[in-house]
């Protein structure tokens, strides 16, 4: 198991290398002159040249890449040409917000999607099944940002039960930084009021993000449960006197969940890279918002940095899923 994990981590290296090269090239193929943009509309040619020289942008691309890559190996993600802040510092500031949102959305969709999938399979072609399937189709079809707007309209404007946006009220003090997850930090500090505030801010964007993975997980779970229910061991379990509840939620669920795991892993990465719209709608200070601003300003270093981090997290999440396969299915473990 350990060797498997180590091997997978070693395989990360070429993936990340390829990612940096690709991002580096694409960033420089884009039209426009980022240095001129950063120098401002009134900058002279000399000032622009000086800025380019300062950031090494006047060097050949190969040299630029070499400088960047060697810095990367030392944990240096470069400096934003626009804000002159180190990219790594920025990413570490924004990443926890995005991770918190993605984790909350995934937790929600797993916690609801798996039992719903089991239930719809058991009640196959009866009304609970039809109802859940129609709702699932609707929530897959609905764009996330639009759903976000609807939620805002309904719960923030009309009912006024949830805040419109942001991560935490400006007038309150943030709980002391431990994990960067406001909800966790508040709990660690023992500050229940902050925890409650953070949860309420988290609720609407997390729901908006969770619906399509929830629907997909539910449908995957339904399909694999239907397949598992036809296995001989289910009949045997009934024949030896196990109750329907125990059979479905223990024996069938564990067998059916492995196909769903794949989807969960993919969705996790997909949500990480796709938070932009939801973060924009809810004014959520996360990586997506940060990356959009950098892209608009043609500020390359943050863009490459964000892509790297998301790529890394994506590969890691799939590694976790692969390890979980082994945990769930003992045959995979020994193979």
């Amino acid at each position: 198991m350990l060797r498997f994990i180590i091997r997978r981590i070693i395989m990360l290296i070429p993936v990340l290398f390829g990612l940096t090269v690709m991002m580096f090239i694409i960033a420089r193929l884009l039209p426009g002159d980022p240095v001129a943009l950063a120098a401002g509309p009134n900058a002279t040619h000399e000032e622009i040249a000086a800025l380019a020289a300062e950031f090494g942008m006047d060097q050949p691309m190969i040299v630029q890449y070499w400088t960047y890559a060697s810095g990367l190996l030392q944990g240096d993600f470069g400096v934003s040409i626009f804000t002159r802040r180190p990219v790594l510092t920025d990413i570490l500031t924004y990443l926890p917000a995005t991770l918190e949102l993605v984790f909350a959305a995934m937790a929600l969709s797993i916690a609801l999607g798996i039992p719903l999938g089991l239930m719809t399979a058991v009640y196959r072609n009866r009304w609970p099944d039809y109802l859940a399937r129609v709702l699932a189709l609707a929530s897959i079809s609905m764009p996330r940002f639009f759903l976000g707007l609807l939620l805002q309209l309904c719960f923030a404007m009309w009912l006024m039960t949830f805040p419109l946006g942001g991560r935490f009220p400006i007038i309150y003090e943030y709980p002391p930084f431990v994990t960067g997850f406001l909800t966790l930090d508040a709990l660690i500090a023992g500050d229940l009021e902050s925890f409650w505030l953070a949860c309420r801010h988290l609720a609407l964007p997390a729901i908006a993000m969770s619906l399509s993975p929830l629907a997909t997980i539910m449908r995957m779970m339904r399909a694999s449960t239907i397949e598992v229910l036809q296995h001989d061991y289910v009949t045997t379990a009934r024949a030896v006197g196990l109750s329907q509840r125990r059979i479905v939620f223990k024996y069938v669920a564990k067998n059916a969940v492995s196909a769903t795991l794949t989807v969960i892993g993919l969705y996790f990465g997909w949500l990480l890279g796709g938070t932009v719209l939801v973060e924009t709608v809810f004014d959520w200070p996360g990586l997506g918002l940060y990356a959009t601003q950098a892209i608009v300003a043609q500020d390359f270093m943050p863009v490459i940095g964000v892509a790297l981090v998301i790529g890394l997290l994506f590969v890691l999440s799939n590694l976790v899923i692969d390890v979980l396969y082994g945990v769930i299915n003992p045959k995979v473990r020994y193979a």
Binding site: H231, D232, T235, T236, A239, Y251, K254, P330
Partner: peptide
């Protein structure tokens, strides 16, 4: 009590 034909498929593999 009941036992069935194929012992390879009647026990839950996981």
């Amino acid at each position: 009590g009941m036992i069935f034909q194929d012992p390879t498929t009647n026990l839950n593999p996981v």
